[in-house]
């Protein structure tokens, strides 16, 4: 029945949208699904670097929209996983170069021959965000356990609801379990209670995220790091599998309860 369009967004910048997009895409493709990523952060192209595809860019999303190339020509094939493609953002243009209708049109062409289309959204709540949101079937909101990131996530949730999309799902990234244990960092339960949305994954703070982006190889391609495993779990949940929350997160009673809710797709109490 065609691809699902998943938009990864956040409100606040620097919380891990690009990292999340690259890793979920890699994990879905490694599971044999056909995946296309679109970098919708026009003017601040980054997904190509994190995926390690920066040297192969000839055409970009704006070239497609403005008719300078065929869609196919702007799709860069991943080096490691079959069935993984990237449509890069333009680096020398700004977000006004494309419209929400353009995004709907481009994704419409991709839906038939793919399983997943992942859109990496720019930060903010303006044009670029609206472009990324327009074609979304599923919205994933990335946040960090930190007051300003959570506040911005709440703003985005309101805007997604106003567009009459399905309620977004939350990824809590950069959790430090030892700080949570000391009561010095918001825990997943707190953030969910405040935002009142469903959780799809918790990703720990992990140095491997940086080494992976240094190398341009998404972590989720192997399960050797904690963050990589957390991203793999999110991909499996997207594919409809019931995956319990990762061990590091399920350290106390309520998170175990939470992990049951995630598995059953229920709302946290």
């Amino acid at each position: 029945m065609g691809a699902k369009v998943v938009t990864v967004t956040s409100g606040k910048g620097g919380v891990g949208k690009t990292t999340t997009t690259a890793n979920i895409a890699a994990a879905l493709a490694a599971a044999g699904h056909r995946v296309v990523c679109i970098d919708a952060d026009i003017g601040l192209r980054n997904l190509d670097l994190v995926m390690g595809l920066e040297n192969r860019i000839v055409y970009d999303l704006v070239d497609v929209v403005e008719g300078r190339c065929k869609l196919r020509q702007a799709m860069i094939k991943d080096k490691r996983v079959p069935n993984l493609y990237l449509i890069p953002a333009a680096q020398t243009r700004d977000k006004t170069a494309i419209s929400p209708e353009d995004m709907i049109e481009v994704t419409a062409q991709l839906r038939r021959d793919n399983d997943w289309i992942l859109i990496d959204s720019p930060a903010g709540i303006e044009g670029g965000f609206r472009n990324a949101l327009a074609p979304a079937d599923i919205v994933l909101i990335v946040t960090n356990p930190e007051v300003s990131a959570v506040r911005d996530a709440d703003r985005i949730i309101g805007l997604v609801e106003a567009e009459e999309k399905d309620p977004p799902k939350l990824i809590l990234n950069r959790v430090k379990p030892d700080m949570v244990r000391r009561g010095e960092m918001l825990k997943a339960e707190d953030v969910l209670e405040v935002l009142a949305i469903e959780l799809i994954g918790v990703v720990p703070e992990d140095e491997q995220v940086l080494t992976a982006s240094n190398r341009g190889t998404p972590l989720a391609l192997d399960g050797r790091s904690r963050a990589g495993r957390a991203f793999q779990a999110i991909a499996r949940r997207l594919m409809g599998e019931q995956v319990p929350l990762e061990e590091f997160a399920a350290e106390d009673g309520f998170l175990r309860r939470l992990s049951r809710k995630v598995r059953t797709g229920g709302q946290p109490a």
Partner: peptide, 22 residues
């Protein structure tokens, strides 16, 4: 006592500010 770390303050402040934001 250890539970009453800064996370608790963060949560309370967020709950207050979000009610007004929304």
């Amino acid at each position: 006592g250890r539970e009453r770390g800064s996370a608790r303050t963060a949560k309370e402040r967020l709950q207050f500010v979000l009610v007004h934001d929304r």
